[in-house]
Amino acid sequence: MARPRIYGVMAEYENPGELLSAAEQAYAEGYRQLDAYSPMPIHGLAEAIGFRGTRLPLLVLIGGILGFVLAYLMLWSIETIIYPVNVGGRPHNSWPAFIPIMFETTVLVAAITAVLGMLGMNGLPMPYHPVFNNPRFVTASRHRFFLCIESRDPKFDADATAKFLQQTHARTVSEVEW
């Protein structure tokens, strides 16, 4: 399939409420390939564009369990197989004494998973993205709110989509180059 002429059409809004209602309208209109951009998190916005939650918490749980189990295996093997030391006749597999280290590694692996998982799922680092081609987009990290309907959406039509966005109280509407 030939690549569409442009990345998408982008509308700019002045406050989170306008962006949220525009996003809801666009989703109701049948657009599915769209994204909203804001200088801070807005509750309900991701859901409004059809985002159905993230599996990050599950990933972090797995990371934590992995850290816990691996630490126990490490400590158990050091104390019983690799380097057993008799300390006052106590059992070699003295698991209560392993708890502090197991706890720390649980937190460590879970935290690293949370950060790398978040970045990975978000596709960051991303050296290039077409939305930055819109010269007004620099304000998306300051005080402006953007909604972009992407050309890969089956319902996308450069003129009709732009016209639709005009009606959503957009401050400006512009095409985004690749």
Partner: peptide
């Protein structure tokens, strides 16, 4: 790292 404030990104970020 190319942060662009996408709604999906903010969701995972939070």
């Amino acid at each position: 790292m190319g942060w662009r404030g996408s709604a999906r990104h903010w969701y995972r970020y939070e």
